[in-house]
Write a protein that binds this DNA or RNA. Structure first.
Lengths: 248, 248
DNA sequence: GAATTAATTAGACGACTGACCAATTAGCTT
DNA sequence: AAGCTAATTGGTCAGTCGTCTAATTAATTC
């Protein structure tokens, strides 16, 4: 007889479900498998989560709140800072870091994969998980990027945001493949390194954009719109480890 | 009675399968659904493709060969050109264009989504479709980027390649979401525009990298390793429509 | 310590799954 | 016109699916 502890039982089910769903998708797993690997009776899943989709949603909700909270609190305190003003690197860092660091925690990789899988699922729209849980974050970060880069056209900010997320998701998802292709040149194991690479690349792209919001409007200073003086110098305000690879 | 035409029947099955698989994944679809939407008897699927996975693989093989061929032929003729030498933009363009243009053809979006889905599937390793069909392309393009950017460290090239693919896949996959979030600021409908944005962004990032392969080795000309003189000026060799947005 | 409630068990339901088979039909060759 | 083979049909197979119900057990309350 199992010890009667509802919370523990739910946790066991959620853990097993998270693993199974992230490994084989919502349709690739049966509730019987989940129940078995959780060491729990099949009917307990229905008892606690009603349906299979209910369980699936519960897996998401368990983890999404802490991450979202960390992300937005990080971003808000960052954007509130006046001196020195927040940099592009810092905004992108606040966007990538919670994901990457979650990956390195126990079970975190599973959840990262689960999110990537849900994002890639054409049926996700009907579930609305992405829309409800991730859209608010997207809006907030896009808004922050627009504030940090006031002269960049809106469209470019949006494009960059989605390229960034896509790149991050793929890298977190296809770790083995990237290592295989790169001959271990890319160091996927250390999250700090991943953050450094992706933040660096996208910050560079944004900084060196030739486009400006209104082509002729504010053309007084910095006429070609590249290498904005004020955004460039705050590189010194970067995070600890980000410096170690800034050769010369 | 159906007209007896084996090729046509196979095509009908493959078309229906491509649609269903891309919409709901390999586990989200039953062979009966595919047979029904193809207007074909269930047993004909087994007859032509043996198993469900056999059908799945056939869907990939039907389309991957033309794309791979187009991509590599484009890339090879590009890399063979001496004067002017190939640019980063052109290499990235040859990488993105076949995908984007396929999307705009009949049924192409379905296949694009199918690939994204397979790439995101944790079980894809066991099938080996990505490894067999996409790894060769990846190696070739990474090699080309290394040739075009001889002073960039290998790792940066690799990272950039994967970020590029990830960004491209996500954008092609989540078209509706991006339009929703951007308030129609991003124009996903025109493939040319998508290519322009992603190629521009990543080329900018690569061009403005501060890193060099061997910090002090080949430091004769272009000592700071940024804004390579020769790569910068060939911007005029860019593709037709790429110019239309190069404001000022 | 009996009553009440929450947690857990065991089992069954109809529906659906992929695979397979033998029988039948149409088109081609000779 | 007959023979042969490829193409197509209708149906069956053993399993598995998610969900539900009724019975049983443990913990809590009065």
């Amino acid at each position: 007889m199992r010890a009667r502890n509802a919370e523990l039982t739910k946790e066991r089910i959620l853990n097993a479900a998270e693993r199974s769903f992230s490994e084989r998708g919502i349709d690739g797993v049966s509730l019987r498998e989940i129940a078995a690997s959780a060491g729990v009776q099949l009917a307990l899943i229905s008892y606690y989560f009603r349906t299979k989709e209910g369980l699936y949603r519960a897996v998401f909700h368990r983890r999404i709140d802490p991450i979202s909270a960390e992300r937005t609190s990080k971003l808000r305190s960052l954007m509130a800072r006046k001196n020195p003003p927040p940099t592009v690197e810092e905004v992108l860092d606040a966007l990538a870091r919670p994901w990457v660091e979650l990956r390195d925690k126990r079970g975190g990789l599973l959840y990262t994969r689960l999110i990537a899988r849900e994002v890639g699922d054409p049926r996700e729209a009907s579930r609305g998980i992405v829309r409800d849980l991730l859209d608010p974050i997207a809006r907030e970060f896009i808004g922050a990027l627009e504030k940090v880069l006031p002269n960049h056209p809106k469209s470019e900010i949006h494009w960059t945001y989605h390229f960034f997320i896509g790149g991050l998701l793929l890298v977190l998802l296809k770790q083995e493949r990237i290592e295989r292709l790169s001959g271990r040149v890319c160091d996927l194991a250390h999250g700090e390194h991943v953050i450094e690479e992706i933040v660096g690349l996208f910050a560079r792209a944004l900084r060196n954009s030739q486009k400006t919001k209104k082509p002729a409007a504010r053309a007084s200073r910095n006429p070609r719109g590249r290498k904005g003086d004020e955004t460039r110098n705050v590189l010194s305000a970067r995070r600890k480890s980000a410096q170690r690879r800034a050769d010369r």
